[in-house]
Each structure stands twice: as structure tokens, then as C-alpha cells.
Write a protein that binds this DNA or RNA. Sequence first.
DNA 1: GGTAGGATACCTACTGGACGGTATGCGGCC
DNA 2: GGCCGCATACCGTCCAGTAGGTATCCTACC
Lengths: 208, 208
Amino acid sequence: MARQARALATRQAVLLAAAEVFDERGYAAATMSDILERAGVTKGALYFHFRSKEELALAVILEGQSAWLATWEPSSDSPMQTVIDLSYAFARALQDDVLVRGSIRLTIEHGSFTQPQVAAYQGWSDATRELLERAQEAGELHPGIDLRGAALVMQGAVTGIQLSSQVLTDRQDLIERIADLWTLLLPGLVQPHALARLSVVERVPAVS
Amino acid sequence: MARQARALATRQAVLLAAAEVFDERGYAAATMSDILERAGVTKGALYFHFRSKEELALAVILEGQSAWLATWEPSSDSPMQTVIDLSYAFARALQDDVLVRGSIRLTIEHGSFTQPQVAAYQGWSDATRELLERAQEAGELHPGIDLRGAALVMQGAVTGIQLSSQVLTDRQDLIERIADLWTLLLPGLVQPHALARLSVVERVPAVS
DNA sequence: GGTAGGATACCTACTGGACGGTATGCGGCC
DNA sequence: GGCCGCATACCGTCCAGTAGGTATCCTACC
């Protein structure tokens, strides 16, 4: 097993380096040599763990997704609050985790390989929609709202705000912008009595 | 001058083909050969008009931007309505104009060359902010709103919604999603009396 | 109005380098 | 000694860019 421990370490080093390079340059502009160098690993080692550049990129995407979801602990509060918390978890993960950043960049670059990206978009907005449905049932939302449309708008808005925050301030104002988003969005979505109980700003989980 | 007419035509053909290919594959993955073939032009011709791949990309970005702004005719209505109209003009331009699509894709891929893209983001959100200030002065908005934040949120949201609409429905539901966005956003932004006078859906300019 | 000369607009063939991927070798732990 | 986990050297391909030629047209001078 000691053997495999080392292998796991190099695999992880490659994944991290790949995420960094993909995040900085994008898929096509990233070269395997870049990744090798940054990981401090040789070609043979890399191609032992990943059979191609594309497979490596897919691994980054998958690991990034699970890394994000791992940070998010569902609080049993209100469904609407959960949607908000999810967006903050996403923002934090983007700021803190290279894997998540690389994953997102690759996902947004829907070219080259298209399949899993669509799934990611779908998955996210489907999850949001489901939460909205539960919020609807709990009487949190205004009646007559198009839940599918709302879910798509939220997912799109968070994605785009993240992008422009990255370009303009290297994601330093991301949390602020997410707060602005919810401040603006919620009055059109939830009823006043529910609005009063929602936390629009980031809720930092208590450190245990 | 007849001479230059032909030259202009090939230049335009190259620009259009380049916009297509950049839109489909992104900057790095797009090859000059792709563009040549699609434009029906030889390498010599292309390199006569554009000295490098990067210069060609920059030309696509610039032409795309002006193409978008050309479609938008400022109506002297309310400033807030102008913001809304701008977003619809953007959406329409994305659906109708290859140049705009290519321009956007290149702009979003902020790698490789970073300068003018930041300017584009800045310019857009600055313009939005200015309109919001005028809307504020006109008493359209709720008091105490962070105009800078709101402008950034709108610009980011429109960008992101466009992106996810592209991935999920090839931009077919883009206009709908923009309408959803404004339906959700406006109550948190503008005062009821102004809200009543705003058109949340696309206002099709009368054909003259 | 014909033609020399030059500029414009384009074509063809080529190059050098980089890049993804592979083949083969080899050390060390079980 | 056998296989896991790598290291090194190499290969074919592809691609941005260039060199140098050519046809077309415009200008100018006779």
C-alpha cells in the first residue's frame, strides 16, 4: 500500500497542476508540457495515470465538481435558504480551490467535448428547480412564478457574475456580488414574510 | 476604387468565417486553415489583410462590438427602460449576427490576450451604471441601492444567462430567459410606480 | 489612347517548431 | 523475480507564419 500512496500523490499533483494550467489558459491553449513542469512529474508518470489530455481534463472536471459539493453541507432550514447557501458555497469553492476553478473554466469552454458539461449545467439548474418547488410548497414564493425559468436565471446569473468578477477583480468581489444578486432577486421571488427570515449574505458555518 | 471593393469583400469574408470558427471552437482550437477553407480564401489573401491570428481575433472582437451597438437605437424613454432594451439588443445580436457571437466567445475567453476584454466588461457595466444613476435621479429606483453593484450584477447575469442558454438550448430560449431575469430583478430595483410603466419583454422596434 | 511602372491584392510552396502521444527501459518494493 | 510506477527518447502531425512570385488595375506621361 505504501506503493500506492506515492502513486496517489503524483496523481494528485498532476490533477492540481492540470487544474491550474487549464484555469489559466483554457483547454486548447494548455500544453501537457506546462502541466508536467508545474506538477514536477515526467511524461511517463502523467500518461501512466491519464491516457490522454482529454481524459485528464475530464478528471479535473469531475474532481472539481465533487470538491465543490463536498464543501456544501445542506442545512435543513428553508429550501430557498439552501439555494442561497449553494451559491455561496460555489463562490467560496471558486476562491479557495484550484480544482474547482479549473473545472469551471473547462465546463464553460463547452467546445471540444460537449457531453458532461451540458450535464453539469442541467444538473445544477435541475437541483435548483427542485429546491424552488419545495420552497413553493412551503409557501415561501410568490404565487405564479415560473420555477423552471427562475432556476435557469439563477444558475445563469451566478455563472456570469462569477465570470465577470473573475475578469474585473480576480474574484475578490465575488461574495459581495452574490450578495447584491440576492438582494435584487429575492423581492421578486419570495413573499415578504419569508424574505424577512432569509439570510442574503453568506452564512459562515460554525467551525467545530 | 473598384479594386478596393473586392478587397473589402474578401476582408469581410475572412472576418465572417473567422467569427464562425472562433465561435465554434474558441481561439486556441481554431486553426487558420479552418478559417481559410470556410472563407474560400487562400493563406496569402488572409495574411494580406490580417498580420496574425491574434490581430484577426481582435478585429472580430471589435467588429462584433460595433455590430451589436449598431443594432441598438437609444429610445429617449426612461433610463431604466434603456438598460432593459440594451439587454434585448444584446440577445438579438447574439442570435442573428455571427460576428457578435464570435466576438463574445473571444471576449469570454480572456486568456491569451487580456487587455481589450477587460475594457469591454468595464465599458458595459460603466454604461449600465450611468443609466442607473440617471434612473435614480428620475426617481425610478428604490432609494439606497448600490448602483455599482447593481450594474455589475446585471451585466454578469446577462452574460451568464446567455452562456447557459447557449449550452442548453443553443440560445433558442435566450429572449425568454432575459424576460424572466427582468421579471425577477425589477421588483427589487425599481419603485412600483416606475415598474408599472416599464416593458419587461422585448420591445420590437417598428419597421420603418 | 497606349503603355510603362508601380502599387494593390492575392496565390503557392515551404519551414521550423511545438505538441500530443508512444515505445521501451529500468529501479525498487513485495 | 515480478510487477508497479515511473523515466527518457523519440515520432508523426499539424500549425502559424513567411518567402517569393503573379495577375490585376491605377496613374502618369507621352
